[in-house]
Write a protein that binds this DNA or RNA. Structure first.
Lengths: 197, 197
DNA sequence: TCCATTTGTCAACGATCGTTGACTTTCTAG
DNA sequence: CTAGAAAGTCAACGATCGTTGACAAATGGA
């Protein structure tokens, strides 16, 4: 087995990173179809052919750009009465902290017309959102956990759509506190509220 | 002034309607970019040139296909305690009754990558959702009505995204009753609940 | 220094798209 | 019946796109 390359900030790695950065920016802003490889190349000050060289195709470039780890906090059963607020606070970090990157915007922007993005988004739900919700929901009823996680996702994806993609004026105008105080209780009820059959 | 044409199901009107029907179907399923004029023409068993002849361009065809009237019930102050249920029931009709057509799907599918669709969706919010919510909210505070309508839209658009476009399995699996019993109270609180500054 | 590998440039390909104009067929009014 | 308008067909245009291959420049280890 060969070395993994512990040290190698070689020339190629830098341009590779430049391309990926430009791709993430443009995919997040214009979606899969709206961002052409030529646009990405121009933004990275490179030839379009290089984009294909480093990533084998536009699809693979998008797949690389769409990697995302929500890093949702592990909801402990202890703070059952604060899960709503905890979730909505993390949501705001993911979407508005520059450190988090535009990962979710990339997926959400393209999920309506690109099946790969849609599938990836369903994966994020199943592997990152659902387990976290399930940890505080009824452990004896896995279907219930899925339902609760689905409700949570419907509210959070809707808020993201209205605030960051559609830019609905009254939703953009909401302050962080207003969002927390309004959406938090909704999520709280979805996760731990006593609901229906 | 000439007659308006009270009777004229002429040949052209029929093909014109066929084209529009095919366009609405394909735009709703694949979005603005994903549905080509050639696809629409094939679905209408017609030549692509005819699509341009009847509608002047793809943009105008989309504009014609994206016309929508939500026909939201006028919320009277009387039934203040049922606005949530009323709204979510109408939501289900709009999205699942064949009579309503795929109007909202057309807009939502393209709104993330097509500025016209996004603007049109903001129009629907401002002219159809917001006034209805404002009718039962505090009439002395128009900004408050906008905020409440925005919250309502975030939940409803998110539900539509998850259930009809993204097709998130647990959200697709929800029965009408489950949706009404879970989303209804959320909308109720957004519209008439005592909230924050 | 020399040479092989890497990195980058350039022009072009085939495909798809919206759109156009010339042409033919079909329908209908006088 | 016939002329003219309406409806429909066909081939092609220019543009954009993802992708490719041939070629030039730069780099770095021997």
């Amino acid at each position: 087995m060969t070395e993994n390359q512990p040290k190698k900030p070689s020339k190629s790695d830098r341009t590779r990173a430049q391309i990926l950065k430009a791709a993430r920016l443009l995919f997040a802003e214009h979606g899969y179809d709206g961002a052409s490889i030529r646009d990405v190349a121009a933004h990275a000050s490179i030839d379009p052919a290089m984009v294909i060289r480093y990533f084998r195709s536009k699809d693979e470039l998008f797949a690389r750009a769409a990697v995302i780890d929500l890093q949702l906090p592990a909801l402990r059963v202890l703070d059952r009465n604060a899960v709503g607020e905890t979730l909505i606070r993390r949501f705001l970090e993911i979407w508005e902290s520059p450190a988090s990157g535009p990962g979710m915007a990339i997926l959400l922007r393209s999920a309506t017309s690109n099946e790969f993005a849609a599938e990836k988004l369903r994966d994020v739900f199943g592997n990152q959102v659902r387990p976290v919700v399930a940890a505080v929901a009824d452990p004896a009823d896995p279907a219930d956990a899925g339902r609760r996680a689905g409700l949570v996702s419907s509210q959070l994806l809707g808020l993201a759509m209205c605030r960051y993609l559609l830019r609905l004026p009254p939703v953009v105008a909401l302050s962080h506190d207003e969002i927390i105080q309004n959406i938090g209780p909704t999520l709280q009820r979805y996760v731990v509220g006593e609901d229906v059959s």
